[in-house]
Amino acid sequence: MAKERYALLPVRGILMDPADITLELLNRDWALVSPEPDAIDALVQSPDGFGGNVAMIRDRMKPDAMLMVKCFMEEIDYSGWQRASLKAEQIISALNVMALYKPMYELVTGAGRGGVRSLPVPLWVNRVPEHPELPIVFDRERFWMSGHAQPLSWPNTMMMKPFGKRTMADVDAAILGAPTICANLLNGQASGGVESCAHALMLAFNSTTLGQFVSQAVGTLDILFGENDSARWASMETYVSTLCRPAPADLVRNLFKVRHKFTHRHQEPKSPEIHLTTLAVVAASIIHWNDMLKAYGDRAAALDVLEAIGRLERASRTGSQSITDAKNSLLEMSPLPQWVQDWLQPYGSLPD
């Protein structure tokens, strides 16, 4: 007989307070908890070996938190664990979209027009250890050193510590204040390819190189629009440029070129911050595409409107005010979060 059990998966992107771990969390379908073994031990009556295994995951994967998912399974039931894993990915995908609208942490980095730029803190299920010990340096006589190499500068635990740990009450409050699409994702009711796109984007955060992330993240937009043929792919750059306004069209064009170079020639991008620009482009596309789905009813109609905007864009070169007015009436979109606006505007040269 299947019994009530709980699956734990390592998560990056949110710090949870160890004091928030109580037996009450076991009444929830899911919860984010601190990865501290001594705190997690409080969830079981006989913790022998439990904290040690959590410590092993914590030390190897360096998670910021653990996602606990309630599930029902037999003593040995691989399919049950697989279902729990898929449910965990669905939950984190939903929370990650919520973070695209308003991150749980407001971090600041780099130089921008106002002297600073906001840095997004994405959430994802951590599947591979970051900071591989590369390069390893040795000669004929001895081993000399190894150094950490991690080209994707997502915010790490040390960067988030000044902002304090979160509780499940904080997460629940953020969900209540989030757009409807986030609740739909949590309930598995999202449409228009948003759910599959969010899942694919969450998996992309396990990328180990800049080029790999750009390729996977831009590829999620094909899922978002629900298309997979050469004609639509050729139009996607125009779709994305429209949804990312007021980002320069050249920024989106360069991003698609970077993806093409990595996918077809395995050339890594040169810009050390291109993953942040990529995430902003994907976030703007998801947010504004969701607006269009609500405004026009379904995916086919929204795609037709995007194509109409592209045609009006070309026609507006004649200088006709009527065409410009028609285009602008279709371009009314909700304001983007500040961090998205920050990374849609290049500072210096365009990322490549």
Rank of each mutant, 00 (worst) to 15 (best):
A39M: 03
A301Y: 12
R117F: 03
Y105G: 05
C71N: 03
A300E: 15
P179F: 09
C182R: 03
M104Q: 10
Y347G: 08
C71K: 01
V11S: 03
P269F: 03
D172Y: 06
T263F: 08
A300V: 14
K102L: 03
P18V: 09
M168W: 07
A178V: 08
V44M: 03
E133S: 15
T208P: 04
A149I: 07
S334C: 11
C182T: 14
D229M: 05
R142E: 13
V137P: 11
K257R: 10
L23H: 04
G114K: 04
S230R: 15
V218W: 11
F163I: 06
P37R: 01
M159K: 09
R311K: 14
T167E: 00
Y105M: 08
L107N: 02
S230D: 12
S79E: 12
A111H: 14
S285N: 13
L306S: 05
E130P: 15
D59L: 06
F138D: 10
L350A: 04
R113I: 12
P269C: 09
T238C: 11
A111G: 12
G52M: 06
I309G: 01
S349V: 02
N290T: 09
N126Y: 08
I92W: 00
P37A: 01
K261M: 11
L306P: 01
L185W: 13
N254I: 12
W339E: 07
D325E: 04
K257F: 02
P37V: 02
T22G: 00
Q341N: 15
G219F: 09
L303Q: 09
I136T: 14
S34G: 13
D64A: 09
S118W: 05
E106Y: 09
